[in-house]
Simulated scan of single mutants.
Amino acid sequence: MASTPRPLAIITGASTGIGRELARIAAERGYELIVAANEARIEEAARELRAIAPAVTPVQCDLSTADGVGHLVEVIRASGRPVELLMANAGLGLGHGFLDQDPADWRRVVETNVTGTLMLIQLVGRQMRAQSAGRILITGSIAGFMPGSFQAVYNGSKAFLNSFSFALRNELKDSGVTVTCLMPGPTDTEFFARAGMLDTQVGQDGSKGDPADVAAAGFAAMMKGEGDVVSGWKNKAMTAAATVTPAGMLAEQHRKMAEPGSGSH
């Protein structure tokens, strides 16, 4: 008698940080994995995950491009398996003032965080809807609640994802497919180094969240079918305050955290 195939989970941005922890949790739950990232370290992550996962397929691709998304979708289709979990976690940050940024850099943030994420969700989400089952986790951010002075494009992209996730969730409410938005605060990952923000107050803050805790909160919320989860009590308090604080005041508060050189004050 043929054995029942194991469930399949897709995790993007899985080479480090929150994405890698999400992949680890899925592996521990018995899922086969397709893990993607835009760097060769995804191979190293896959080797480690194979110690606990029944099967891991690494995909190095640039999800800021249609070709990169297409390559990942081809790998998913070639597996011949229905996707049970899609964790759309890939994202890029970018510090400094908007007028001082290279257009190629801020476009890559938008194309990774927004365009590529939506392309992947649409292609995989159609399959999930057709099978009347599936869970989607989108990594948004509490940054989406604040005008992001010196992180303007990044925060704007996360505001988009926070909003989009709830709209898509409502569209799919009777389909058997759930959508959950994970909204972490500052987390102890390589994000700030990659975004050029190590000289900022938030970049040097030693009380950032543990990516394992953030991933655990997001995975649990996804499996329960919840609409959103803000990880950590401090971030919950910040989010609650942001909903009643004037936008101009929030922008000034964010400036103090993210302005270059603020970490030396």
Rank of each mutant, 00 (worst) to 15 (best):
T189A: 11
M1D: 07
L86K: 05
T243L: 15
M183G: 01
V230L: 04
G17W: 09
G68Y: 12
G203E: 06
E21T: 02
R24Y: 00
R129F: 03
A51E: 14
E28Y: 11
E32D: 14
A241N: 08
Q131F: 01
A90P: 11
M87D: 01
R41I: 00
L198Q: 14
G209T: 09
M146L: 07
R41N: 10
I11D: 01
G95H: 11
K173E: 09
G148M: 08
G97P: 01
L22I: 11
R6A: 14
F98N: 01
K224R: 15
M257P: 00
S165M: 01
P54Y: 04
A242N: 05
W233H: 11
M197P: 06
M119A: 14
D100V: 06
N38L: 00
D228F: 15
F166Q: 15
V153D: 12
P246C: 06
T139M: 06
R135E: 03
A195L: 05
L161T: 02
G30Q: 06
Q60F: 01
M183C: 14
M119V: 00
M249T: 15
V124W: 03
Q201I: 03
G68N: 11
A104M: 08
D174Y: 07
G148F: 05
A167K: 00
A247V: 04
L22H: 03
P260V: 07
E39A: 13
A251P: 00
A26E: 12
G17Y: 10
V214G: 06
H71C: 04
L85M: 12
V73G: 01
A195E: 08
G125E: 08
N235S: 13
R126L: 12
T180C: 12
E48P: 00
E111L: 02
M238L: 13
E171D: 15
T187W: 00
N113W: 05
F219L: 09
M249S: 11
A167I: 08
V83F: 02
V83L: 03
Q201R: 15
N89Q: 07
G227T: 12
G203V: 03
R77P: 02
V230C: 01
E84R: 10
A143W: 10
R50I: 11
